[in-house]
Computed example of a mutant assay.
Amino acid sequence: MDVYFLGTGAGMPTTKRNVSSIALRLYEERGTFWMFDCGEGTQHQVLRSSLKLSKCEFIFITHLHGDHLFGLPGLLSSRGHQGGTKPLTVFGPPGLGDYMKIVFEVSHTQVPYPLVIKEVDGGVIWSDDTFSVTALPLDHRVPCLGYRIQEKDRPGRLKFELLKEKGIPPGPVYGQLKQGKDVQLPDGEFLFAASVLGESIPGRSVAILGDTRPCDHAVRLARHVNLLVHEATFMEDRVEHAHEFGHSTAKQAARIADRAGVKKLALTHFSSRYKDEEQMDQLLSEAREVFAETYLAEELEAIAVDAE
């Protein structure tokens, strides 16, 4: 599991940074990736990456500002042309359905796969036996969501030596036990999965927030996550400007990470006013004064979601 950045700029693209889009790559866990926001030009960024749109399972839109949304209709259309046939669900705030309906109707766009647009305003918005996704409203100029992706605890590792001592060779029985299922052996003995499994492995978690001022819901979504992705549109000398336009500074994002007790913080959504490496180093330094495990998101690069 890792977070791959397709666009890390704010407001409008620059020659170095595209507007907002993030891929949560779950290839080992699900064989898919999930996308968060889809600003203009996102499908061009996908073409520059190893991502395949046919592998996109879900898209989560944080809010309906153009730098987070304008790339969505084109990307959904292109997915069909690139072999995407499996269902895809797009989650987002109220108004997303109207937007997509109008764009598709006016442009006569059709997609050759089941497409569901699901408007949400908070709570657990999706769950299965491996992951859950929770959304909460943030503090921006328009309705905006943050998302928490929680991997569920996994069964512990099999005690292979114990199984060998019992004379049980590798095979389907191992798979059943690994899934936590008790099995009956050929001699009639019952083998309980709990007796041959180690302690369960805690699931990893990621919080990916949309544009926001510092707020309690940001802390709630990020509580003890392995990785928090938080906007850092400005440096601290622009803190009043950030508040006026519903954004955060890098230092404010670091304070959220510190309050939430996260393992790692990735900053993104940088103002186009920061054009050189020296300015970005200063932005990072301001955040690290508060939270040491802070990193800058870079275009077409990934940050791992480590278990520890």
Rank of each mutant, 00 (worst) to 15 (best):
K178H: 03
V3Q: 04
A307R: 10
M12I: 11
P114Q: 12
F245N: 06
L162D: 10
R288M: 09
G95E: 09
S205I: 01
T8R: 09
F5G: 06
F190V: 11
F190K: 14
H108G: 08
M12L: 10
F291R: 03
E165V: 03
I201H: 02
F160L: 15
L47W: 13
H140G: 01
L51K: 07
E286M: 03
K264H: 12
Q82K: 08
D2M: 09
M1H: 12
A297F: 04
P73I: 08
V196Y: 14
P172H: 11
D306C: 06
E236A: 07
V290M: 02
H108V: 00
L228I: 09
H68G: 14
S285R: 15
S50L: 08
L227D: 01
A304V: 03
E278I: 10
V19C: 03
E240K: 03
V196A: 02
F131T: 00
E298Q: 14
G92C: 05
E199P: 05
E308Q: 02
K275C: 01
K178T: 09
L6H: 04
F36D: 12
V133M: 04
L6G: 12
K164S: 13
L136Y: 03
P112M: 02
Q282L: 10
E105V: 05
L227R: 04
V103S: 06
I117Y: 11
A135T: 11
P169D: 07
D121G: 12
G246K: 00
V90G: 09
Q45Y: 00
D128H: 09
P143K: 00
N226Q: 14
E277Y: 01
L300P: 00
